[in-house]
Simulated scan of single mutants.
Amino acid sequence: MTITPLATACSAPLQTGFWRCHSHFRHAINLQHPQGDLLTLLCTAPELTPMGWLLARTDFHAISSRLKPGQTLHMTQDGLHGNGFHISRPRRCLALNPAPAPQLPDLASHLTGIPHPTGLCGPLNRALQQPDSIQARLFAILNAWFTTGAGVPATFIGLGPGLTPSADDMVIGALALLHTSPELRAQMRSRSLLPNLNELHTLTTPVSACYLNHASQGRFSSALIRLLRRLTRGSPATNGAIAKLLAHGHTSGADTLLGICVAQRWLSVTYPGAVRYV
């Protein structure tokens, strides 16, 4: 059986060699390379991850029935070979980088009526009304990075529950917002907020480490890119994009949104000469 993916992120890892089935979910299968990179096979959905290959629903389910955690697959120049199937290398490649946004409306105003739980800060709307110590830490982390070049402390990475811990999701949201600023994007290239992938693997889960590694290089999920684009345009579809992000994981979407809001507060207060973001 030969399968051609519908699309891939331009940054999806393609190292040759053996990949192990790390985890298996209803709509996603994570494969891990010995060097630590992750490749995610995704069932047809509107969201594409920075390390994802998007498969047609019937193709995904055919593969899902043949794969179990711990099994290995072999990546060659012509694609991925598994138990009776071959997934050819994707032909359609999508860039998952935020576009520059000289003016970004306040996201928090769209979230005031949303009591969706976050992983560490309680209901989302309450967390925005009364910022707690976790949000204050992230604000201070951004400030320290901007003023001294310090990165995210190891004690913050991996904090909280989930396959992607809550603090990691907040950092990803903050980084996505910062990457809409051309000046800050250039600064992040010269002094990263995050350590390299090998060190991230010692601090958090394998899945989260890979998401963070891509975020440090300006690559995010299509759901997050879509939200930032609609927010920038003041689109009436912004609330729909928020709802789709909230559906990601139990608290991951809410934590990501909270991270964006913290970064917006930081930009409006701290970044000298910045255009108003709120």
Rank of each mutant, 00 (worst) to 15 (best):
M1L: 08
M1R: 06
L6Q: 15
L6F: 02
T8Q: 14
A9D: 08
S11C: 12
A12Q: 01
L14I: 05
F18L: 15
F18E: 12
R20K: 13
S23W: 00
N30Q: 03
Q32V: 15
D37S: 13
L38R: 01
L39A: 13
L48Y: 00
P50F: 03
M51K: 09
L55W: 06
L55D: 01
I63F: 01
S64N: 10
L67D: 04
K68S: 15
K68M: 09
K68C: 07
P69D: 07
L73W: 08
H74G: 00
H74W: 11
M75N: 08
M75V: 10
G82Q: 06
H86G: 07
S88A: 15
C93V: 15
N97S: 15
P98R: 02
A101V: 04
P102N: 03
T118H: 10
T118P: 05
G122I: 07
G122F: 10
G122D: 07
L124W: 05
Q130P: 00
A136R: 13
L138P: 06
I141E: 05
A144P: 05
F146M: 07
V152K: 05
A154Q: 08
G162N: 08
G162T: 05
D169E: 07
M170K: 00
I172H: 07
G173H: 02
L175R: 06
L178S: 02
L184K: 04
R191K: 12
L194K: 06
P195F: 01
N196M: 09
N198F: 01
H201L: 15
H201S: 00
T204I: 01
N213H: 15
S221V: 04
A223C: 08
L228F: 07
L231H: 08
R233G: 07
S235K: 05
A241H: 10
I242P: 03
L246S: 10
A247K: 03
H248L: 14
T251V: 08
L257E: 03
A263L: 05
A263S: 08
L267R: 13
S268W: 08
Y271G: 03
V275R: 14
